[in-house]
Amino acid sequence: MREKITNPDAIRTWPGKVPVEYVYTVGVASEPFFRALMERGRLLASPCPECGVRYLPPRLFCERCFSRLEASLELEPRGTLEAFTVVHVDLDGNRLDEPQAYGLVRIHGADTALVHRLAASDADEPEVGMEVEAVLLPPAERTGSILDIRHFRPV
């Protein structure tokens, strides 16, 4: 058995990295979603005319029946908290100054959940089943990104 090597300089190594970055198109289905969020502060869903499933964020296709979908359903950014977690350490194991809560929110009128941050507040302990609403950035600060939603907070 080899001893555990804690100092990589003790053996001969060659450093390397994968030097690529990415630019992702948001896609056909997400373009109107982000436009509606940025311009009107509303959330779009794509209902399947065959299955009836209402996808949010919208999809170009229904995964169940392969129907082509349109993001035709405009919904208020409010819903029900389905699950949550409170994160206390970062990826390197360091304690966070402020724990950060994340949740799955089922927007009223949609059949799928949206993952997002939850407002951090001692007074507002998350609770599964609670009613939450999106807190949006001021219109001038929105860029057409999922972070145009600052977080969800209890109603």
Binding site: T25, G27, V28
Partner: peptide, 16 residues
């Protein structure tokens, strides 16, 4: 060279 569609949207179009 650059499709607006995401990878899964491209897959769907071809598969359908």
């Amino acid at each position: 060279r650059r499709a607006q569609e995401t990878g899964k949207e491209l897959s769907y179009l071809a598969a359908r």
